[in-house]
Amino acid sequence: MTSGVDLSRPQAQTVGSDEDVVRVRQLVRTVAVAVKLSLVDQTKVVTAASELARNTLVYGGGGTVEVTAVDNGRRPGITIVFADSGPGIADLELALTDGYTTGGGLGLGLSGARRLVDDFDIQTAPGQGTRITITKWSR
């Protein structure tokens, strides 16, 4: 099966509707399969991406997702960047608490996504937008 995705370059997807969140899931799945993540790890990283892309849409007012196949010399992996120029997050520790939501959700998106991946980095400030980078390495 050919994926039709060029793994040598980052793949970008704009997030402006909930159909785009579906597209993000599909793109992440394709790259996760290509870098040979196990089925469980594919499932974890696609789930994390779904949560973070929805946040980009709902709280960030839309933005972009960039998916890259990476290699640290020992093993391959997948890195995904979620970026928006929305309101940003004032109290990051609070936002990362299980169950905390300002939008009537379950409050498990940020905290759960962090548990599901190997590396989780977040840059945000009020009025500065939000940029989250996650990586899952193949074992």
Binding site: L39, V40, Q42, T43, K44, T47, E51, D98, L106, L108, S111, G112, A113, R115, L116
Partner: peptide, 14 residues
């Protein structure tokens, strides 16, 4: 429910 989905749900905290 697939096993991989069940494992992921638990770690997500659902």
């Amino acid at each position: 429910m697939r096993p991989a989905v069940a494992i992921t749900l638990v770690e997500l905290g659902l």
